[in-house]
Design a protein around this nucleic acid. Structure first.
Lengths: 345, 345
DNA sequence: CTGAAAGCGCTAACAG
DNA sequence: CTGTTAGCGCTTTCAG
């Protein structure tokens, strides 16, 4: 009991077999220049002595940690939970572990996360930029040090790094068109902070869909919020109090849509008959609301998988796939539920 | 650009100042025996040379990694997302990082997680046991190696380690009593796998609440499912098809409750008038259902924080707080929403 | 096919 | 107050 705390090292195995640590190391890594018989006996005694390789020592020697650092705004958003799921899958297949850092949507915290990862010698960083972040210098430091960085979802082109994003423009376009097809003509948009790329793209998709279908843009039907349930409710109330009350609403994401739904219900309006509603992100709760929430699905797990794969690509081919940063765009899919479906099966 | 990739070490700083690495190390750690002037110049050149301490080297030397390993069934369940949030908070304050491993509710995967953590030389492991896991030997190995283990939520007393759990018995008791107070007399329970401690405790709380209030137990009103939306729906349908149709249902957790709610609605029963319903866990979606779901709140973030604190306690006091494993029981709180509220404000 | 030896970057006696 | 030295556990030339 008491002596078993002491960890066995390759030295211990070597001593037990009257060979050297170098040979043990080679045997355990299945080096071709080692005799089968030796490999066998080494593996057996390793097992018997309950040997566990010390990754830290190995990392120091090799200069790689076999750890990927992941920076997310919050683990409490199910979207990011799914992405992590995808990242983990691919990481584990490649013998990598995943270190998580939550920025809580704060710039300072995000910066600290990068510093921590730098000290932890992670081999790469996958990150989704916080809503508050505008200055991106902390990410450049990774680049300077040759540590691959891959952004997902909340990406930025200005860094010149690879990224995996959803085609937010397309998703927004499709969502808006869907409302038009359902007969809506006064379609409002509740937007997010416009310095966040994805929110800006969604606004553009909304505008273009209206244009393509010859529906005049009404500035009063576009309101900007802070992307939360509260904010969604408040923005919707503003729209309801306006002169041009909408008959359809495209919300920038599902939490905002939820707030809007609550406001619409409180106002005694029928959904989807009087006001149709659609969100974005396919958060878990949307399916179970009454009416169930139409939304745009983003392939979250795939996003995580692809982000991790991009990292491994960069790592293998030595700091860039073909030379330029890759930008992988996942196509979103409309999920049409009760909150917007006026006709059809 | 090209030379900046090479990492600067304390040796580099030492060379630049014509002192030795040991002094640099001491200066950076604010060692009392180092002259202020030296500390100042060291810190400055460290800054100038863009020095980042190499944690891996430090870890190898010190024998501690400053990493906590966390094993959770799935990051896609918001409950665990919140717990991680709590863990991270406390970990960061103490200068620790968090490595995440998802078991996906699989025994083999959980086992692999422990092995990985062992190799990564984590200083401690916080874990929530997967539903599939029965054999706990992989956790004993941590104990043997003197690595503190703290269980949360899905705990087990048989391991003799500290844990943070919710008072599931109490939560279930209160939930059931609440249904009784609302006038229900034929109260059903949709349970989970009984080898999982928390599910078993919830069954007991249900039974005792009925006993205390002199309501006869009807075995036909207890059904066991697999803890999912599907399963909840199916179990509820079985209850609805029975001879003794319940007027109140306590579901083992919220996803099960959600399935039950769908089944009740499909059957055209009024909720809460004909059948009242309450779940457990306070998952994010419950608040937004129609009717909104009554449930039992578990203080998830606090759970994570306390689990992490327990680890640091054990670590500081050298492998046990007072000698015995601590068992921290968080008191749950009833959240009474529309799905069960027949009277009152 | 295996051994000897050096070193990854950092820290902690011990010495002065 | 600072330098010298050794070593954490592992991998990898270079020899043999």
């Amino acid at each position: 009991m008491s002596q078993s705390i002491s960890k066995t090292t390759i030295e211990d195995i070597a001593r037990a077999l009257n060979i050297t640590a170098a040979t043990v190391s080679r045997a355990l890594h299945n080096h071709p220049a080692i005799k089968e018989a030796t490999k066998k006996i080494v593996r057996e005694t390793a097992e018997k002595l309950n040997y566990r390789p010390n990754r830290i020592a190995s990392s120091l020697r090799l200069g790689r940690s076999y750890i990927i650092g992941v920076i997310i705004p919050s683990a409490e958003i199910s979207f990011f939970g799914s992405v992590i799921h995808g990242i983990e899958k691919v990481a584990n297949i490649n013998g990598y572990n995943v270190l998580i850092y939550q920025s809580n949507e704060l710039y300072e915290s995000e910066k600290k996360g990068v510093q921590t990862f730098l000290q932890s010698q992670v081999d790469g960083v996958l990150a989704s930029i916080s809503k508050e972040t505008i200055n991106l210098d902390h990410y450049s430091e990774l680049k300077r040090r040759g540590i691959p960085l891959v952004l997902f979802d909340r990406a930025s082109d200005s860094l010149g790094v690879s990224s995996v994003v959803v085609n937010d423009y397309r998703g927004a376009f499709d969502a808006t068109r869907h409302l038009i097809e359902q007969g809506c003509r006064r379609i409002a948009h509740i937007g997010g902070q416009q310095h966040v790329n994805i929110f800006n793209q969604r606004l553009k998709g909304y505008i273009d869909a209206l244009n393509v279908h010859n529906i005049a843009l009404d500035d009063d039907l576009i309101v900007y919020g802070k992307v939360s349930i509260e904010s969604g409710r408040e923005c919707m109330n503003r729209l309801l109090a306006g002169t041009n009350v909408p008959d359809g609403v495209f919300a920038v994401e599902d939490f905002t849509a939820l707030g809007a739904m609550q406001a619409i219900k409180s106002a005694g309006k029928k959904m989807p008959e009087e006001i149709a509603l659609i969100g974005f992100a396919n958060e878990a709760f949307g399916e179970y609301l009454t009416p169930s929430l139409s939304t745009v699905n983003q392939q979250t797990v795939v996003m995580g998988e692809e982000a991790a794969k991009l990292f491994f690509d960069i790592q293998r081919k030595g700091h860039s796939p073909n030379g330029q940063p890759q930008k992988l765009v996942l196509e979103p899919a409309l999920i049409c539920r009760q909150s917007s479906k006026r006709f059809g099966p």
